[in-house]
Amino acid sequence: MSKRQQGKSAAKVVRKQLAAERRRKRTMWVSIAAVAVLVIAGLIGWGVYQSQRSDAGPLVAPASATTTTGETLGTGPVQVQLYEDFICPHCKDFEATSGSAINDLVNDGKIKVTYNTVAYLDPASTTEYSTRSAAAAACAADGGKFKEYHDALYAQQPAEGSAGLSNSQLIAIGTGMGLDQGSFGQCIDSGRYKPWVASVTDAAAKAGVTGTPTVVVNGQVIPNPTPDAIVAAVNAA
């Protein structure tokens, strides 16, 4: 090989090395940029969630409820916590089989029961029916008709995957019970208790409730909440 040829191939090697180095650097910067974009995407997600929360308005609790728990009925010594979603079919089944046992326990002065009307299943309707129905029941609570309204919502439970009952249907159910068309309708249409529903739902998740219905008697989850199991747990408490 002549000197000239050697010089040429050496230059070729150097060029190749420089090109490889450029590729390596570019890959590194592209990767760093991709990671940065992913981090930014995550931050955007958190921002979107925060703004969804704050857009919903101020947090006010309805009558006989707190900002983190649902309406409480009865004055008995044993505390029963119910976690229900108005679109959840198993909650309807639960109400059908165990609802009267709970009513009896309330009427006999044995328990006080808190209806934590959570919105776990908002994606199960096309209109966030879980949130809207729970907020409507809170409006009914202000008019002193929570339990009646609660029972009516289960009697007319819409199917999962549907649009659920419209706001005007929710209002009609209330006015049918004698609730004031103006104030009750305004309460539903303005979404006054939607932030409260979100807060109760959050509190339930924080308490470790992963599904509805969940029945808790004096702090103990009843795994299979039949009427007998609930009565037995109340008597044992």
Partner: peptide, 23 residues
């Protein structure tokens, strides 16, 4: 809240084939 946005971004990076090894 962050995870769905990260997942979608990962999906987009992979669809267009940008920073494939990092993704």
């Amino acid at each position: 809240a962050a995870l769905p946005f990260v997942e979608i971004t990962l999906g987009v990076l992979l669809v267009v084939g940008l920073a494939t090894r990092a993704a």
